[in-house]
Write a protein that binds this DNA or RNA. Structure first.
Length: 423
RNA sequence: GGAGAGGUGGCCGAGUGGUUGAAGGCGGCGGCCUCGAAAGCCGUUGUGCGGUUCCCCCGUACCGGGGGUUCGAAUCCCCCCCUCUCCGCCA
């Protein structure tokens, strides 16, 4: 959520910044509601002040055994006026809040401007794109030939966009989760969390999934529970409605969770394999930091995600998302794109974002160092999307005969196994 | 799922219709005392919104959440949520 005061002070700057995202956002309507609200609140509070004074006088009179019936009768009218104003304030307030919640974050100045991913800026490339003296297979062919991934069976169990991991495939996924968590907790300084995989609507609103993107997530029927689309939701909301101590900051959390996404609107996109699934595993990193540290902390968090790819020796590049490709709540995002020989392309495997105080405002996460509480800044990123990492390992480590070498760093997690071979 | 108990300020804990934003204690902060510390003593100690000479003050709201009764509600009524105990069920 943006600061309403910023909209009041400089509506033109806000409008201009939002326009870079490509959509049409009306700041004017919000300011109109805001003005209405303030006038109503002022009027209501003046009446209340009057009422409070009168009520005290009535109390005093009754104590002194005096007749207060006239004063009581006089207050009857004011009560209805207040009630009517309360109702109006409620309506305007709800309207204003809804409008504000539907306004995305302002893109940072440093972003390249553009409407879609073609305008994203490449920051750096790591590793060498591998060359093969044979035709490399994609992960679907590899997985099925090795009998470690079964999409057909998953379709029987559930439907499209699911995958059954089998044997070494299941274990490889688990190994990757453990490697990531061990690196983040062991050398990057994060505290591991294991949150609920369902959250309520308040949490979804806190991180920005609601009210605008309800259709992207799965909701459990007859409840207020949502399947989490990312661990960002429960982990960021850990400190919802809290005032942290200055000494508590910065807080670094990491969490493994499955993620559930409806993928509404992506029909026909990435239908093959496990690139785009309704359920996938992810290890997430979430930071709560002081405002002045957030840009530096974003760089560090991005490097923490890169460290996993480097440990696995997977080639990747870092992209800065342009203004039009930026997510709703983010001010700036780096995408890590891993090289996939099966697609002959770089594909997103991590998204690391600085939200500034946007989520903190929504979720009301503050800290106190002087008199007045301040909003923290939140930062998060995938470290990494596990399913896509498994895809990358299979495709990048494939051998001529269809076997897949296990990256050195994963072998301890695989019981010493050095390769997955056709049985 | 059934029965019961309970949710009050950072924490513990009083309060059951009228200066109660809320006693008391703990903790925190400031001061006195001290060579220093502890103990002791004194003072202070929330958040949102609105107004404003913009953190100084004023107003208003907040005692799990939402409605209601009343001139007036932490206190009475209704609904919901959560926690605890017992039973049932279950991993």
């Amino acid at each position: 959520m943006l600061d309403i005061k910023l909209l009041r002070q400089d509506p033109d700057a806000v409008t201009a910044a939002l326009a870079k995202r490509g959509g049409a956002f009306s700041v004017e309507a919000i300011l109109e509601e805001d003005g209405k609200r303030r006038a109503l609140v002022h009027e209501m509070e003046q009446l209340r002040a009057e009422q409070n004074v009168a009520s005290q006088a009535i109390g005093a009179a009754k104590k002194a055994k005096e007749d207060a019936s006239e004063a009581i009768a006089a207050m009857k009218g004011i009560k209805d006026k207040i009630a009517a104003l309360e109702e109006q304030v409620r309506t305007v307030d709800a309207m204003l809040t809804d409008l504000l919640l539907r306004l995305p974050n302002l893109p940072d100045e440093s972003l390249p401007e553009g409407l879609d991913e073609r305008a994203n800026r490449e920051e750096r490339v790591w590793g060498e794109v591998p060359e093969y003296d044979f035709e490399p297979k994609d992960h679907v062919a590899l997985g099925e030939d090795l009998n470690i991934l079964d999409f057909e069976c998953a379709a029987k169990l559930t439907g499209a966009r699911f995958c059954l991991g089998k044997g070494a495939g299941a274990r490889l996924e688990r190994a990757l989760i453990n490697l990531m968590l061990d690196m983040h907790t062991g050398t990057h300084g994060y505290t591991e969390m294991l949150p609920p995989f369902m959250v309520n609507s308040d949490s979804m609103r806190g991180t920005g999934q609601l009210p605008k993107f309800a259709e992207d997530s799965f909701k459990i029927e007859d409840t207020d529970y949502w399947l989490i689309p990312t661990a960002e939701v429960p982990v960021t909301n850990i400190h919802r409605d809290e005032i942290l101590k200055d000494a508590d900051l910065p807080l670094y959390y990491t969490a493994y969770t499955p993620c559930f996404r409806s993928e509404a609107g992506s029909h026909g996109k990435d239908t093959r394999g496990m690139i785009r699934q309704h359920q996938f595993n992810k290890v997430e990193m979430v930071k709560f930091v002081r405002p002045e540290d957030s840009w530096h902390e974003l760089e560090k968090l991005t490097q923490n995600a890169e460290a996993i790819l480097q440990a696995l020796k997977l080639p990747y590049r870092v992209m800065t998302l342009c203004t039009g490709d930026l997510g709703f709540s983010a001010a700036k995002t780096y995408d890590l794109e891993v090289w996939l020989p099966g697609q002959n392309a770089f594909r997103e495997i991590s998204s690391c974002s600085n939200f500034l105080d946007y989520q903190a405002r929504r979720a009301n996460i503050r800290f106190k160092r002087d008199k007045k509480p301040e909003f923290v800044h939140t930062i998060n990123g995938s470290g990494l999307a596990v399913g896509r990492t498994l895809v990358a390992v299979l495709e990048n480590y494939q051998q001529a005969g269809g076997s897949v070498k296990i990256p050195d760093v994963l072998r301890p997690y695989m019981g010493g196994l050095d390769a997955i071979t056709p049985s």
